[in-house]
């Protein structure tokens, strides 16, 4: 029997006075990691809260592990571990208090695994939450989410504000959690390095819209930076996949997506010389997408 998709969002919209999440389609199968990338205020947290059933969409449908959200949220949340950067534990209580509480709710709670996680993440369960640093608090919520052995992990900016060492610990545990091949992760961040490291699929979200969504390899493979010389000042060919173009004297730097090997020839035919074709990092793609989306919005506003 086919497993239901980990997450399936179709035409999801949500309107606030100063923000509009528009017509979001997002889906990925179980056993994979979806990285949700976007700048602050893009709509990542809103989308994640809708996936968790904490916010109801104005239109569209959301299914999580086959359960309709928010209607079937109790059944769905029995199989979801959620960690958010702004999620807090009870300051006056210890980590052990929280572990006891979560253990009392989830039959799937694995005490041995919880102890392993505490050791690996260097946490003392007798310590009160108010004495923990931000990084330790994130690690504590990670223990609470992982030790219940959920099918789906939803991480909303878990690495924000962490120092590099703690960030690595958190990412390593997320990777370890994927040892179970049916476990899935939805992971949001504006840190593209983190997303690039663990994701199978990447979705870029900007201004409440999904700008791009695809397999990571295809995604990285589809973007290129072309360095061109243009001694006769010829116009650039009118190609729809040019996302960014910068001129410095006779030198042009052009960023394209949906790259294929025939593309350089089109520039050559237009009278330009292609001097280099370079791959982009996810960070560079992210910046290009944001700048391109911003320019599109400004053009729409101007017209």
């Amino acid at each position: 029997m086919d497993l239901p998709l980990a997450i399936q969002c179709e035409g999801v919209s949500k309107r606030y006075p100063h923000f509009h999440l528009q017509n979001v389609d997002l889906s990925f199968e179980q056993g994979t990691v979806m990285g949700l990338v976007g700048p602050n205020g893009a709509g990542k947290s809103t989308l994640m809260r809708m996936v968790m059933g904490l916010i109801g969409p104005d239109s569209g449908s959301i299914r999580v592990l086959g359960h309709a959200m928010p209607h079937d949220q109790i059944a769905a949340k029995r199989h979801i571990g959620f960690v958010a950067e702004d999620m807090r534990l009870y300051e006056s209580e210890t980590i052990a208090f929280h572990m006891d509480f979560v253990r009392s709710i989830f039959d799937s709670w694995d005490d041995d695994y919880a102890q392993v996680l505490l050791r690996r993440l260097d946490l003392n369960e007798k310590q009160k939450v108010k004495g923990l640093s931000h990084g330790q608090r994130v690690k504590a919520t990670l223990v609470l989410a992982l030790a219940r052995r959920p099918s789906l992990l939803v991480f909303d900016e878990p690495t924000t504000g962490l120092d590099p060492a703690v960030r690595k610990e958190v990412l390593d545990e997320m990777m370890n959690a994927l040892a179970d091949e049916t476990r899935s992760i939805l992971f949001s961040s504006h840190n593209t390095l983190d997303v690039e490291q663990i994701s199978d699929y990447i979705t870029f979200i900007y201004g409440g819209r999904v700008v791009e969504s695809s397999n990571k390899e295809d995604f990285l493979d589809g973007w290129r930076r072309l360095r061109l010389t243009n001694p006769h000042n010829r116009p650039l060919p009118d190609l729809p996949n040019i996302k960014e173009a910068q001129q410095s004297g006779q030198i042009w730097t052009v960023t394209v997506n949906q790259y294929d090997d025939a593309l350089p020839a089109q520039f050559t035919q237009a009278g330009l010389t292609v001097t280099a074709v370079e791959r982009l990092t996810l960070e560079e793609i992210f910046l290009s997408i944001v700048l391109s989306a911003k320019a599109n919005i400004q053009m729409k506003v101007a017209s």
Binding site: M52, G53, L54, P70, Q73, I74, A75, K77, R78, I80, G81, F82, A84, D86, M87, R88, L89, V102, I105, T141, L144, A145
Partner: peptide
């Protein structure tokens, strides 16, 4: 947010 991440409406 922590409480509502649990199976509760």
């Amino acid at each position: 947010a922590f409480i509502m991440s649990l199976p509760v409406t």
